[in-house]
Amino acid sequence: MILNKEQIKEIIPHRDPFLLVDRVLDIEPGATAIGEKDINPDEYYFKGHFPNEPIMPGVLIIEAIAQTGAITLLALPKNNGKSVYFGGLKKAKFKRKVIPGDVLRMEVELHQVKEKFGNGIGKAYVGDQLACEAEFIFSYM
């Protein structure tokens, strides 16, 4: 493990219940990162999504990918303390349900990182099964 939750909290401002990365398995700051999130049965959203069929909302899988991307970007010393925001999403696809007990693995590659904007691609897996993929644009300052 390269980064634990406490180390992640030093890089991005997200906090429970909206910090969606438990650990970072591998990171190359400014370029790539692999993060993981344990999908616990007591996640707050399962109560309502859905009452008899708990499924992680797709937008939260996207958010977990985005947070992994934010860690990659803000782990660069020159970006320390900056904020990252979503600019856009393209080609988002959801391929597999994510349910309690799964371990979600987010793999993110930043492609172009300019002074205030950038883009990249993220994929989320459960084991070797692709659950979600998307291209994203972000701004940071």
């Binding site: 600019g87 856009g88 492609h111 172009q112 300019k114 904007f117 883009n119 644009i137």
Partner: peptide, 9 residues
Amino acid sequence: SLDAIQLIM
């Protein structure tokens, strides 16, 4: 403006 950024990239 965001389209413009994406286009330039």
